[in-house]
């Protein structure tokens, strides 16, 4: 029984996972004494906790998540960005211009205009207001070049892989730079067209085959077979 539970299993909403008194993590609920899955995915029962790795679904902002967004409009002292979620990311003017500053709309448009792509961090997210995003860090800010790709946000952990193995494999064999947002948006930039196309193909492959095991090896094989 123990071995059966500890193996990752395919689950659907309503599927029974286990009865043990474990800490509930993502995508599981307690119904009486039974822990059941709330989504389609892979169940993962560890020694003290239980979760389901979802294979589908929308992005819900979590504090400290790194996301890629597209500026939609400016309202008041803030930019509003599409972060591929049911909520819009709110970027405060003072986050860019410094505390206590009151930039005009034209100054704001000059810095970040409609359609600009940004790499940002979720600074605050609660149930009452739109999530607050921030670009006040060296690695964050406007992204000037690259190809924007969208995959299912549920598959981002798969794209990154264990300790970044998958993303390192793709970057290593294509010489591309890949910026991954946890909201399912990815920017790929590469000097060579061939490398760019291969990186995009690899990302698409991860999106389509996220539920398969040994995916990193399969992606590696695909990248090698094209003769990089």
């Amino acid at each position: 029984m123990k071995r059966f539970e500890s193996k990752k299993r395919h689950v659907l909403p309503g599927d029974f996972i286990t009865t043990a008194p474990l800490r509930l993590q993502n995508n599981v609920v307690l119904e009486g004494k039974r822990i059941i899955s709330t989504t389609i995915g892979l169940s993962d029962v560890s020694d003290d906790s239980v979760r389901v790795i979802s294979l589908t679904g929308v992005y819900l902002p979590k504090i400290d998540d790194l996301v890629i967004g597209t500026i939609q409009y400016i309202q008041g002292n803030s930019w509003f960005a599409d972060i591929n979620s049911c909520y819009q990311g709110m970027l405060l003017g003072q986050d860019v211009f410094g505390r206590g500053s009151y930039p005009t709309k034209s100054e704001m448009e000059e810095r970040l205009g409609k359609g600009d792509i940004i790499f940002a961090k979720i600074a605050n997210s609660d149930r009452q207001r739109e999530p607050l995003i921030s670009i006040a860090d060296q690695s964050l800010g406007k992204i000037d070049s690259g190809e924007l790709v969208k995959i299912s946000p549920a598959k981002i952990p798969r794209l990154i892989g264990k300790h970044g193995s998958m993303i390192q494999t793709i970057e290593g064999s294509t010489n591309a730079t890949i910026t991954v947002g946890q909201n399912g948006l990815i920017v790929v930039s590469c000097d060579e067209t061939n490398g760019l196309l291969k990186a995009l193909a690899a990302i698409r492959m991860v999106d389509e085959q996220a539920h398969l095991v040994n995916l990193t090896d399969k992606v590696k094989k695909m990248l090698e077979s094209n003769g990089v």
Partner: peptide
């Protein structure tokens, strides 16, 4: 709904 990834207690 399940296909859309909406969390559900059961189908």
């Amino acid at each position: 709904l399940a296909d859309a990834g909406i969390p559900m207690r059961d189908l």
